[in-house]
């Protein structure tokens, strides 16, 4: 057996120092993805730093900003009364993810850090640039029905599997990261990366850094919203395409719009141009269709996932239609 070390930290500072000193150390929270990766031989950490005891499980509304501790479980966040009332899009996205059992142990930080579910990534006998840089991409020319249509590179077409992150990127969340020097804050949209030539890097978190909190400004997007997840079965399946949509509508006119997609890129995919198009327009079918068309600029299929070029815009239209009807 690979006898890895297991340590439990109850203070952020100590957790950080334990990981930053040791190149083969890693944090473990809910472990819903990391344990799978270890079992499959995709990763073999020599030291696990359990961060479940860190005091990061609070949800608080302060000065019109929602603070979510990184150790809040997915189910606790989805069921929180403030989240349900003021950020229902996030609650809906969370409930679309995984299964009830997984949501009970999966944390907010862990959800952001989960790796792709690409089959080639998990099979250590197959080529995968994300697992083993330089071995090639198994999915290009192979089974790629679940794969990306936006922001792909020659080295990787994997998608980020999270639903929660799609909701968060639509809500302009900020990520607060702790490191040896203190804390830094980046926008959620900049947290995850596109694969480029370094697909082994999923995000911009540096070694020795830890996600401690998310901050979401309050908004007027809690009335007309929808999270649509299109998948092969009704639960416990990753998205073929998912859409987070939220509109602020006043007298039929869209004041503010948020749109993001999951299952289409290496990161949660925010659709800023489509949002900008919708602002100031009438909330109607033809504008939704135009927004969906704009959202698809630059999309590219890889054979088995070509259907997403049709499914994605259709899903945007459907999500916007349901969001509008909610009032």
């Amino acid at each position: 057996m690979i006898n890895f070390q297991y340590l439990r930290a109850s203070v952020v500072k100590i957790a950080l120092s334990l990981v930053s000193k040791d190149p083969k150390a890693t944090f473990i929270a809910g472990g819903t993805n990391l344990i799978d990766l270890m079992k499959r031989g995709v990763t073999a950490p020599e030291k696990l730093i359990d961060i479940n005891k860190l005091p990061l499980a609070q949800i608080e509304l302060k000065n019109n900003v929602l603070h979510i501790g990184a150790m809040v479980s997915n189910s606790a966040l989805a069921e929180d009364s403030i989240v349900k009332e003021q950020f229902p899009l996030l609650a809906l996205a969370l409930q679309s993810g995984a299964s009830a059992q997984l949501r009970n142990v999966a944390t907010v930080g862990g959800n952001m850090m989960q790796r792709t579910r690409c089959g080639y990534f998990y099979d250590t006998t197959m080529p995968c640039n994300k697992r083993q840089p330089g071995t090639g991409c198994g999915a290009i020319g192979g089974y790629n029905r679940m794969h990306a249509i936006f922001g792909t590179s020659e080295s990787c077409i994997a998608v980020h599997p999270s639903d929660m992150c799609v909701g968060l990127v639509a809500l302009d969340a900020q990520v607060v990261i702790a490191n040896a020097k203190g804390e830094r804050k980046i926008s959620f949209a900049d947290f995850h990366r596109l694969p480029g030539s370094t697909p082994e890097k999923d995000n911009n978190l540096q070694k020795g850094e830890l996600i401690v909190r998310l901050e979401i400004p309050t908004n007027n997007l809690y009335k007309n919203f929808h999270y649509l997840k299109v998948r092969d079965r009704s639960s416990y399946a990753f998205a073929l395409v998912s859409v987070a949509a939220a509109l602020e509508i006043s007298q039929g006119i869209i004041k503010n719009a948020r749109l993001a997609m999951g299952g289409v890129a290496h990161k949660p995919w925010r659709l800023v141009e489509a949002e900008n198009f919708l602002k100031g327009k009438t909330a109607n079918a033809s504008n939704f269709e135009d927004a969906a068309r704009i959202a698809m600029y630059g999309a590219k299929g890889f054979g088995e996932n070509d259907f997403k070029l049709k499914l994605a815009p259709n899903s945007i239209i459907e999500a916007l239609t349901v969001a509008k009807a909610k009032a």
Binding site: R117, G119, Y120, Y122, D123, T125, M126, G142, Y143, D232, R233, S234, S235, Y236, A237, F238
Partner: peptide, 18 residues
């Protein structure tokens, strides 16, 4: 000559909600 969805997350048997 290999399966690419040889696990219960990717080989979809119906769930209750189906």
């Amino acid at each position: 000559g290999k399966y690419v969805n040889n696990n219960f997350a990717d080989y979809h048997v119906p769930v209750h909600a189906d």
